[in-house]
Nucleic acid binder design. Structure first.
Lengths: 225, 225
DNA sequence: CTCAATATTGTCAGATCGACAATTACTGAC
DNA sequence: GTCAGTAATTGTCGATCTGACAATATTGAG
């Protein structure tokens, strides 16, 4: 008999940084430490529902407004110091930079932190969450290559340069604006033009909405071949 | 409180077919139905260890001899009809076509079945294992594109044509021998020549062993661009 | 109007792709 | 031995894709 929990690695792109939603734990174990939001799976819900519920409790957001998918399970016997063993199913969520309606509503302070600060900084992270975050970051970076989920970081309507900035920030790598534009517009079903244009700074950019495609053919590769 | 199990989707390539190891259940629920091998996680082992232990119990094989990695967790409340809820962590194993030392030793008949027969046939599959198998097959097919795990289906020493046949059978698609050979030998660290040659039929083929590389740069894509 | 800023399109040489032809190196039949 | 058969490997070629970077287009600010 074990407890089964879901943990959430919720990512966004804000202030020119790849950011993850972290909470400060309000009780033992690891009181005061940074951790991923999450909680126990209840008797009548499946894993996806548990993840969506926890997401809503922590951020006030609805799962329909973002991309949510399972990352993997973590179940080392000593990953949680409490007497009952806890196996955690971790979920990955990608969302645009929205205000968090109920941030801290759960008596736990939730805040966005730059991924580089979390992984590279001195902060002590609760449980095995540092490892989970590392896995989640790598998964997110890889997904941008082969799937269309990068648009999940953008608002409902966005310019190609917005999407390019997402890729640049998540990958930590500059991309050529012209080549990027040609590539993403060349993928069938990736971007649907809305007919509207942005108006800020230079030449107006055509605005797009997410298209129906889920996989990128051909992929956008980050590696130098 | 829930039970946590591991299930195994063990694949190989044999008799010109992409095959999966299935057992016939010896007890209720689903007695007599086909199912994936698996069992419950014990108190003192982590998930990877549980998967390796179950693999050994079902096939007599050691996890060191094959590729074993976690697929994902399945946890719908009604996926197991027994009163205690069971969350299952499914593992994917890829192995060469070896004889199974203890097949059926666990009082359950274990046998290789063609993936197409399992998914396309009329056989009733226990639990949600049909869905799991579908996910596992898709994951395995995708992994061949970007990782070097295809060699896990080959014997210790193998010719490029052996590896090509693996790709052809798993993907269900013919590949050009010349182009395939050039591509795989061009990936740094994928294949290490042994200096030996095969002797059967036509011109002898150089034999190789798995190299240290784990990811394929550039990837081998199955889609028609 | 001129300029700075940004979007988009154009260009071009090098890499890669798939299709398929040519060459190489064996085995087995005769 | 010679020859046909089989399969590995290398060669070729046009189409496509890539990254680098130049050129053009369209706006707002001054």
């Amino acid at each position: 008999m074990m407890s089964v929990a879901v943990d959430l690695a919720v990512f966004t792109v804000r202030d020119d940084a790849f950011a993850i939603l972290m909470i400060e734990r309000g009780q033992e174990p690891f009181r005061g430490r940074l951790a991923l939001p999450g909680g126990f799976v209840e008797a009548d819900e499946n894993l996806d529902q548990a993840a969506a519920r926890e997401l809503h409790e922590e951020t006030g957001l609805d799962a329909a407004d973002l991309h949510l998918e399972q990352l993997r399970a973590y179940g080392d016997p000593d990953r949680d110091p409490r007497p009952t063993r806890v196996v955690s199913i971790c979920y990955l969520a990608l969302m645009p930079d929205l205000p968090l309606p109920t941030a801290g509503g759960d008596a736990r302070a939730a805040r966005w932190m730059a991924v580089d600060d979390v992984l590279g900084g001195p902060a002590e992270i609760a449980f095995d969450h540092r490892r989970i975050i590392g896995d989640a970051v790598e998964r997110a970076r890889g997904m941008l290559e082969h799937s269309t989920v990068g648009t999940a970081f953008c608002a409902d309507q966005f310019a190609i340069s917005d999407l390019r900035r997402v890729y640049e920030i998540v990958w930590g790598r500059r991309l050529d604006p012209g080549n990027f534009s040609r590539k993403v517009t060349g993928v069938d079903g990736f971007l649907v033009p809305t007919g509207e244009f942005s108006r800020d700074g230079g030449r107006p950019a055509a605005l797009y909405r997410r298209g129906p495609a889920t996989t990128l053919h051909p992929p956008l590769l980050r590696s130098t071949r």
